[in-house]
Design a protein around this nucleic acid. Structure first.
Lengths: 203, 203
DNA sequence: TGTACATCAGTGAACGCGCGTTCACTGATGTAC
DNA sequence: TGTACATCAGTGAACGCGCGTTCACTGATGTAC
């Protein structure tokens, strides 16, 4: 149901969508408001009806990327069903892999989402993953499941959040920026498993 | 021994130095070649005698930052002397802290050093920390010492490199970009200690 | 010691460019009567 | 049902800016004789 050219259906959303696509291709630093407008065959000044300035547009775009990222995480999480030990362990790995793959496959989007553009104010709690969006909630669920099944001990559970998040995010960015090879990923997954004492170290 | 204005002693180095200072203050994306030249009271075109273009200058600057980062790591490492268990454990923590502090104190420099500007080609080996500069070598030394003292088991040692590097780098960037609070740092250090089974899990 | 000259290291004016943003405007829309 | 009009959603020309880069140049330097 494409509208006729003059009155756009939802220009704000269209701008964000176009900006996202532009960022994906060339990176946020090379995206211009004019270019985005041109993509939509709309005059640059039209954007100012919806966003106070270019930064606001990019900020909104960052938000959209963050949501996309959350969806990918969810797909990964849901790709493995079941409540057995294997399924639950697999879910944690799947999350980690999806995180890293997103960074590798969409480097520009990843940088926008986790870079300086989307600085969310941090609340009182020094680490509340549930505020970190869908990805955080899913990690919590995976870890909870592991503990419930007795795969990991309470002490491991306690450290799981910081450790998993930091390690996976670190590996993702290191790969992204070319400081480490992708081949290191299995080693990291092993390391995490070892770190959470999932190899039977804990009775 | 400042030379007279016309023939600069070593303009190439001076440009890198000025660029580094500029990056430190405003971030690489806002640094202009013209601005750097102006800082040195030199015409913009003079820079082209030493660097083919602006990117080359920023690349060299990134290299300089990387060295500076290495020095900071070394200072941290050497700030703790001794070969006892406490000293060796302390060295690992000191490295982690220095890494994270550098990111927090010099966000713009950190981004330049670890961002897209300094993509070092990765060799065959999927992870050779010694190629990752001074910081990598120091981490290896710290882990080796821990193993030699029997503080960590060989299996933990094996996973130590990826885990420590990823986790610390991840926490550093997460803090840097405002996605997690600094208050999470002690928790991460605990988690790493736990992960390496330094709490006596391993006999 | 003095001079000629090649080389080095910088100047400074100019180029073209694409950008973010503004402003007064006009075409489209929908509602009241 | 038709018309007047307020409102909404876009246009397009223009602004000023700072940038990277080029080019022909000139001032300083050091070496050969």
């Amino acid at each position: 149901m494409t509208k006729d050219p003059y009155h756009h259906g939802d220009l704000a959303a269209a701008l964000v969508g176009a900006a996202l696509e532009e960022v994906r291709q060339v990176g946020a630093e090379k995206v211009s408001l004019r270019g985005v407008a041109a993509t939509l065959k709309v005059s640059p000044s039209a954007a100012y009806h919806y966003f106070p300035d270019k930064d606001a547009l990019l900020g909104a775009t960052g938000g959209a990327v963050f949501e996309l990222f959350g969806q990918r995480m969810q797909e990964a999480f849901e790709s493995i069903s079941g409540d057995g030990r294997q399924a639950v362990e697999g879910r944690l790995s799947a999350l980690a892999m999806a995180y890293i793959n997103f960074a590798r496959d969409e480097p520009h989007l990843f940088r926008l989402a986790f870079g300086a553009y989307c600085v969310t104010p941090i609340g009182d709690k020094f680490m509340d993953l549930s505020e970190a969006g869908l990805a955080g909630t899913l990690l919590i669920r995976a870890l909870d499941d592991l503990q419930r099944l007795g795969v990991i001990a309470p002490e491991a559970r306690q450290h799981g959040e910081v450790l998993c998040w930091s390690a996976v995010h670190g590996m993702a960015t290191l790969i992204l920026e070319g400081h480490i090879s992708e081949l290191a990923v299995p080693a990291l997954l092993d390391a995490i498993r070892f770190a959470l004492a999932m190899d039977g170290k804990v009775a």
